[in-house]
Design a protein around this nucleic acid. Structure first.
Lengths: 172, 172
DNA sequence: TTAAACTTTCAGAAATTTCTGAAAGAAATG
DNA sequence: CATTTCTTTCAGAAATTTCTGAAAGTTTAA
């Protein structure tokens, strides 16, 4: 109950959030009708919601032998789910922005004003692209490594300093 | 022009996005009227938009001597701006979720089903809290360090391994 | 084939968000 | 204090998003 209410903050609408929350909460495959009944949502709306959740790769269809209903359930560990949400959001929010910026940067500036502007847009572009690359690389890392990295927190700075010192020594 | 269209993907509405884009694009202080004229937006709407941007701490008011209009302009480097957007979004999206989760975790589970559920919610809570802490610590890091960290990408894994090996040797 | 048991689609209704413009506020000036 | 020049607020209009439920589609089985 509580949980569903926060749906809208996470990039999908309330119903979708509620459906997802329900599936996480009961942690067992449900039919579309079960979901609609549990949440008092129309059958059509459930269908849309599940479609959306499938496009986020957060929910999968499952079949029970001798039963022709579709059963839906969440997929993977909490860690996997979080990863998918972040990844999809990155795709949906940053990719179009990057494409747009790239297009603008390809245009030939008509005057020095436009050239200035391109300069500033390039900064933004490079920053976003850097973040994109970095985050997607981090997602390749094993959960354990990510965990130590996270525990390290800003202490990461010290490790980097240390590494730099070693490298400098080598190049002396 | 182009730029404003992507406004809605970033946590604020189209108008707010356009206003912000305009201010970044011209990179000089504008009055509310300038903005309204440039974007064909009603005066009231401009006022709302600027209020919102101020609440994101992306835009500041400035005064010119002998002129009683309010001039608005963006604040800080691209890096600062990006930082602020991320920070505000973290606040707006994750904080309420965390509070909610914490409240649920404080309730006493009525039966073993609820206890299971709490277990799963605790996982989510801990994960989110970890991410929150980590990202806010990363933001404390200097841009240069963050930059090397980002360039390192998944290579961070190797640095961590390296650090672990050193520590283990010490404790041998 | 036909029927039964499902799922999906989609037009329009309902809810929500955003925008406008007129009215009210605020601050500076004569 | 009256006026001018600006800003903010807010009720209702407009636009957009979400939801419903009936109709169409799909699959399996007899």
């Amino acid at each position: 109950m509580h949980f569903g209410e926060m749906g809208s903050r996470w990039g999908f609408n309330r119903t979708v959030g509620q459906i997802f929350a329900l599936l996480v909460a009961v942690d067992e495959p449900l039919t579309a009708n079960d979901i609609g009944d549990a949440l008092s949502i129309s059958r059509g709306n459930v269908s849309m919601g599940l479609k959306e959740l499938q496009s986020w790769r957060l929910v999968q269809v499952q079949h029970k032998p001798g039963d022709r209903k579709d059963y839906y359930h969440t997929t993977g560990s909490i860690w996997d789910l979080a990863n998918k949400v972040f990844e999809e959001r990155r795709k949906r929010e940053m990719d179009p922005t990057l494409t747009l910026l790239r297009d603008i940067l390809l245009e030939t500036p008509a005057n020095s004003r436009e050239q200035d502007l391109q300069g500033r847009l390039r900064e933004i572009h490079d920053l976003l692209e850097g973040i994109m690359k970095w985050t997607s690389e981090l997602q390749q890392l094993s959960p354990e490594k990510l965990n130590t990295l996270m525990k390290l927190g800003s202490g990461v700075g010290k490790v980097l300093d240390f590494k730099d010192r070693l490298l400098n020594k080598k190049s002396d």
